[in-house]
Nucleic acid binder design. Sequence first.
DNA 1: CGTAATACG
Length: 259
Amino acid sequence: MRIITANLNGIRSAATKGFFTWLNRQRADVVCIQETKAQEWQLTDPVFHPAKFECHYHDAVKKGYSGTALFTRHTPQKIIHGLGIDWIDQEGRYLEAQFGNLSVISLYLPSGSSGEIRQEYKYRMMDAFLPHLQKLRAQNRSVVICGDWNIAHTEADIRNWRGNKKNSGFLPEERTWLSELFDKHGYCDAFRQLPQKEHEYTWWSQRGQARANNVGWRIDYQITSDDLAEQVQRTRVYRDKMFSDHAPLIIDYDFSIEP
DNA sequence: CGTAATACG
């Protein structure tokens, strides 16, 4: 099966640039979207509900802000909106689809780049999310968590690591949190299961010529439970001018969703 | 500076 994750930086803007035309050609089974920046009542146009998918939206309370979506070709047994934690769910950051023993999750971890208050919020969500991830493992579920984690893990995941050691998204505490997820809690970075390509980033600053020079960060991941690690068949970062600052991440797995 | 509403990334 193929899972795509994409931070769209505004789903309405993305639609006008041809995102849905592109998507309908991708043979995706599940599509996880972040930063819809819209509420569902603003998305009545059929373009936002492509026919071959079952489409779910999880909006932020604040208009034009954040928001996740999950499109699926197969009907899930259950859709879960949010973590059950109000101050997180108000920002529309977690949307889960359950297919038997498999959970596919669209996740948008906060950015901390605007200042201390949002960095603290980011840390608080990381702290609140970890027990949830442990619970999913304790239930013996297979899990694919797709989305914008707003953290570059290692020096291989960011072009200018020296210059960003004190910047949100590459702080030691954030990187350690991801390391512990991988080393202690039974999760792995699907993209890193296959032979490494260098300088494969998913996000570029809009300042200067960052995109043109590929001075980027890998902050979008599909993080799976360890049991799915050997299922990864092919990974691809899809760079196209249609996607203004984030590139979608496409991963093919060697498992299928039970009907 | 883009997206979408005057903030946020």
